[in-house]
């Protein structure tokens, strides 16, 4: 028996290599897309366009990170797009009411947390499936937002607030800095804290986790709260970018966030996922949309391409996992 343990270190290195390899494959895909587009259209590589691309991808990227936490527990958060739209309204209303920007932002984030806690409550206490409770919030939040605004857009009367999203720091758009601001702590949280481990354990086998002393309910609350928080944060960024509060904004972003996460190697069955994967996934999607625009590809095609890409990447990911065993 002991002889077998001696011959050990081969297999895990392989498994790790596979993971790294998958990350690299995504990165390579992104780079290849960039190179091809730079050659195909001169406007792609322009600093203006690159900055634009980073801005486009950033918000979905942040949503995808929050979404990934939820998916790792074996759940799903369909509400994030609606939370983004609702948050633009909350932010706009408060800024226009004369609140200081920081207070308006902080309050919006608290609203996002509140929505996440509500999801946790619905799942843990009411026993509703995540799909249902977040679907319910998706439609109700849009409705509440429309009631609050009477269906109108609210123009945000703060120039300073709006310049933030257009500005850049060190040549990099501020919005992309926000991805780093979210991504680095998210990575540390997921890979290097016990709460990250608990997310995985709940997604893998909630019963085993419970019997091991993991507070499963609290872990579920945590996942949805983080997702709600990320969504509210994106809402603030979007409000800054478009300068209005409008509850119908960010239509379908929840699906883009889920797609980014899945392209980034997250398993919808839970217990498999990372932070860098969804980030890469989000920027791959953004690049495809951006490139298609520049190449004057019919925007209907962009949707089709995205769909095909999801199938192809997840299929190859499945092959990789089988091979990795």
């Amino acid at each position: 028996m002991s002889t077998e343990t001696a011959a050990a270190p081969e297999a895990p290195r392989k498994r790790r290599n596979f993971n790294v390899l998958f990350g690299l494959t995504l990165l390579a895909l992104l780079v290849v897309l960039w190179i091809v587009l730079s050659i195909a259209t001169p406007s792609f590589a322009s600093p203006v366009n690159i900055a634009n691309l980073l801005r486009q991808g950033s918000m979905i990227a942040i949503l995808a990170v929050g979404q990934t936490f939820v998916i790792i527990t074996g759940g799903i958060d369909l509400s994030v797009g609606a939370v983004v739209g609702f948050s633009t309204v909350v932010t706009a209303l408060m800024i226009n009411a004369g609140w200081p920007v920081w207070l308006a932002v902080a309050t919006t984030l608290l609203v996002g947390i509140g929505i996440g806690v509500f999801h946790g409550f619905g799942i843990v206490k009411m026993g509703l499936p995540p799909f249902i409770i977040t679907l319910a919030t998706l439609t109700s939040l849009r409705g509440i937002g429309l009631l609050m605004t009477n269906g109108n857009s609210i123009n945000i009367q703060s120039e300073a607030f709006q310049t933030f999203s257009r500005g850049s720091f060190g040549g990099v758009p501020n919005l992309f800095w926000m991805v780093i601001l979210v991504g680095v702590p998210a990575y540390v949280f997921l890979q290097h804290t016990r709460w990250g481990r608990y997310l995985f354990s709940v997604g893998s086998n909630a019963e085993a986790a419970r019997l091991s002393g993991v507070n499963v309910n609290r872990t579920i609350y945590m996942a949805y709260t983080l997702s709600g928080l990320c969504a509210a944060f994106v809402g603030v960024l979007l409000a800054s970018r478009i300068g209005i509060g409008n509850p119908t904004q960010a239509e379908g972003w929840e699906l883009q966030a889920i797609a980014s996460s899945v392209i980034g190697g997250t398993s919808l069955f839970g217990a498999v996922g990372s932070v860098h994967g969804p980030l890469l996934g989000a920027f791959i999607l953004a690049t495809i949309n951006n490139g298609a625009n520049l190449l004057n590809v019919n925007s209907f095609w962009q949707r089709i391409i995205t769909g095909v890409l999801i199938i192809v990447i997840v299929y190859f990911d499945g092959l990789r996992r089988k091979g990795g065993r």
């Binding site: 804290t193 481990r197 085993a208």
Partner: peptide
């Protein structure tokens, strides 16, 4: 009930003690 099957062996062994082996939240 006993194991998180699609997670690594080491992960399973440490699951009850992650609290003990982390400091300031970091493992």
């Amino acid at each position: 009930q006993g194991l998180c099957l699609n997670l690594p062996v080491g992960f399973n062994i440490n699951l009850p003690v992650y609290k003990r082996i982390s400091a300031n939240g970091l493992i």
